[in-house]
């Protein structure tokens, strides 16, 4: 039975369809990479999976609970089993890294402060930040911030770990270190990991399966070998880095004609 099940998911912003009838099952313990270009809808899908937004229609079922229709209490319960590291890390700037990681433990458990300190140290050690707990987030480098965010996401030992663009803006070495960390978490703790990214080397290193998004729909879902072997021209264009026809003379002319037509209609 899948741990996350997405059924006929439709999301619209101001009448503009961003996700168009998505269906996806994510199995427990697998690493699913949501791959796609900018504006393909992958971050929107991620926000639906973690229950930050409600869809226009469709369902997102996490551990058997439909989080698009459940009560706030049920949603809170589901969220205890999901750890999220945002693209911007989103560490609280007023708290030290240690306190950021300790926050969910202090809020949701009745553990003694000494136990919380020990657990925080362990989580920071897993991400390689054991010596940096006392620093404030603004004193950390980009890669360290992202690792801090992962440590906070791990605080409650979630079954599902969600990472939004973990390697965006990082140099290749730090990005590779994060990839190894994701693999370690998946293998050592059996976590289900969902990663949103547009970095192909990272996606092919960590993924069990890849779901490829384009303009709000999945164009391909499969193992990394299946994706690599895909002959779908949209998949191939993305993998082979073929630019879309946005700045050619014909494309500009088409946009200009469309603009003139809209002006005439207004008059």
């Amino acid at each position: 039975m899948p741990i996350i099940s997405i059924r006929d998911l439709v999301v619209e912003y101001d009448g503009r369809r961003v996700l168009d009838g998505l269906n996806l099952d994510i199995e427990p313990g697998e690493t699913m990479v949501l791959l796609g270009g900018s504006g393909s809808g992958k971050s929107t899908l991620l926000r639906q999976i973690i229950g930050l937004e409600r869809p226009k229609s469709g369902r997102v079922i996490v551990k058997g609970v439909d989080i698009t229709r459940c009560s706030p209490g049920e949603l809170k319960k589901v969220r205890h089993s999901i750890g999220v590291a945002f693209q911007s890390a989103a560490l609280f700037n007023s708290l030290s890294v240690k306190d950021n990681v300790a926050l969910p433990l202090r809020e949701h458990t009745r553990l003694a402060p000494s136990i919380i300190d020990l657990m925080v140290w362990m989580k920071l050690a897993v991400v390689g930040l054991a010596d940096f707990g006392k620093l404030l987030p603004q004193e950390l480098s980009g890669g360290m911030k992202k690792r801090g965010a992962v440590a906070r996401a791990l605080a409650l030992d979630p079954e599902i770990l969600v990472l939004d663009e973990p390697s965006a803006g990082l140099d290749p070495i730090v990005a590779a270190e994060l990839d190894e960390l994701i693999l370690l978490l998946n293998h050592a703790f059996g976590m289900t990991v969902i990663v949103v990214t547009h970095e192909m080397p990272s996606a092919f290193r960590i993924a069990d399966r890849i779901a490829m998004l384009r303009r709000g729909t999945f164009i391909s879902v499969g193992t990394k070998d299946e994706i690599r072997a895909s002959q779908d021209p949209r998949v191939r264009n993305f993998l082979d880095r073929v630019p879309e026809d946005i700045a050619s003379a014909t494309a500009v002319a088409a946009h200009f004609e469309k603009y003139l037509h809209s002006q005439e209609t207004r008059q």
Partner: peptide, 11 residues
């Protein structure tokens, strides 16, 4: 900076 979102996802 998505800190409010991170609060929500931490329940």
């Amino acid at each position: 900076t998505e800190e409010l979102d991170s609060l929500r996802v931490m329940a």
